[in-house]
Amino acid sequence: MVESASYRRETTVLRRQGIMMAALKLFATRGYTETTMEDIRQLSGASTGSIYHHFENKENLALALYLEGRKELNERLQPIMNRPGQPLEDTIKDLVAAYVAWFTDNPELGQFLIQADSTEYLSTQVQSLQQSSDAISQHIMAWLRPMIDTGRIALYPDQIYMPLLFGPSREFLRRWLKSRQQIDFAHIQQELGRAAWRTLRPHP
């Protein structure tokens, strides 16, 4: 039976995803440095030709994982900014809650994203990406800009809005991802959202 083009495309996508998930598991358990492409190939079940067809080397694979995680996170946050008529305070709090929820729903990939910002193997590429084409930052700043200009959001240098909005949540998540302890996330999300709003609301 002749395979259809759509079937081959689907198979290729699934194979690539399987390779990425194998890499993520190994990075989380063995660490990036100790993981080899052969380790990833064996765990994923891919052939040597297949794995190198999708990823030239381990660095490219790690960057693809990072980009996939950022894309998924952006897709979680983007709809919240498009809710017509919702009070600004509620939107800020919902953004923070969604940010925390994505990381707790995807702990391995979330931990990889946080580590990739500061680890040697991706830090240079990640920093370049964040400075040039970080979709999350771009979308949020485009959404905030009219409210900053009209005084509905406190005036700060553009570079610190993302740290003010998500910085405390990121630090909490960095610590939680190391322990994975049971915790009342609803309460944590609420308090972090309140803190973000207190920082970003117009100063009296």
Rank of each mutant, 00 (worst) to 15 (best):
A142T: 12
A195F: 02
Y7C: 08
S6T: 14
A101C: 08
Q181T: 14
Q131F: 06
E72H: 00
R41Q: 15
K93R: 15
M141D: 06
A196N: 05
G110E: 06
E75V: 04
A23G: 14
T11Y: 08
A28G: 07
G167E: 13
S118K: 01
S4A: 01
S179N: 15
D90T: 14
E59K: 00
L109A: 13
P163G: 03
G45T: 10
L192D: 10
Y32A: 12
R70V: 12
T124S: 13
I40E: 06
G151C: 06
R9Q: 11
F185I: 09
E89I: 05
G69A: 07
T33R: 14
K25A: 11
L95S: 10
Q86A: 11
E171A: 13
M141V: 08
G18N: 13
L164D: 09
T48Q: 15
L14Q: 15
I114S: 04
T199S: 15
L63Y: 13
Q42F: 10
Y52I: 05
N57S: 08
R170V: 02
N106C: 06
L73V: 10
G18A: 07
Y66N: 02
Q131E: 12
D184K: 06
W102V: 11
S6H: 03
L164Y: 00
A154L: 05
R198E: 15
Y7T: 15
F166Q: 04
L144F: 15
S137N: 04
T91P: 00
K178P: 00
P202Y: 01
P202T: 06
A135Q: 13
I19W: 04
E191P: 00
S6K: 10
N57I: 05
L200H: 01
E89K: 09
G193S: 08
T35L: 07
L63H: 10
R198K: 13
G45S: 01
M162A: 08
L177E: 08
E171V: 12
L26F: 04
T119F: 06
A22P: 04
Q131I: 09
L173E: 09
Y156E: 14
I140L: 14
R174H: 08
T199I: 12
G167C: 07
Q130Y: 05
N57H: 06
R194I: 14
D134Y: 11
T35C: 08
L24G: 13
L61K: 01
D94C: 03
S47A: 14
Q189K: 14
Q17R: 15
A98N: 03
L61N: 04
S4F: 00
Q78N: 05
F55R: 10
L24I: 09
S6M: 04
L122T: 12
Q42C: 06
G69M: 01
R145I: 01
I148E: 07
T35D: 04
